[in-house]
C-alpha cells in the first residue's frame, strides 16, 4: 500500500488514449456508408459497434497503467 500522505495524482500521459475513443465515434464521415457489408449488415451498423473495441482498449489501458 502506498503512503497515504504522499501526494497522489490522477495525471498521466496515458490518459490521452481516452481521447480517440471519444472523438472517433463522433465522425459520421467514417461510418455513414452502406458498403462494405459484413454478414449482410451495412458498414454504418457494424463499424459503430466495432468502435467499442477502441473504447474498451482505451479504458483498459488507463486502468492497467494507473492501478495502485
Amino acid at each position: 500500500m502506498t503512503d497515504p500522505r504522499s501526494p497522489r495524482s490522477d495525471r498521466s500521459r496515458w490518459n490521452w488514449v481516452l481521447l480517440p475513443a471519444i472523438v472517433v465515434p463522433l465522425i459520421p464521415a467514417l461510418f455513414n456508408h452502406e458498403e462494405p457489408r459484413l454478414f449482410g449488415v451495412p458498414l454504418f451498423y457494424w463499424l459503430q459497434l466495432a468502435f467499442l473495441v477502441i473504447s474498451v482498449s482505451a479504458t483498459l489501458i488507463v486502468y492497467r497503467v494507473t492501478r495502485r
Partner: peptide, 9 residues
C-alpha cells in the same frame, strides 16, 4: 460507446 472514456476520470 463514448460515455465511459468520457466520464472515467
Amino acid at each position: 460507446v463514448i460515455t465511459y472514456p468520457l466520464v472515467m476520470l
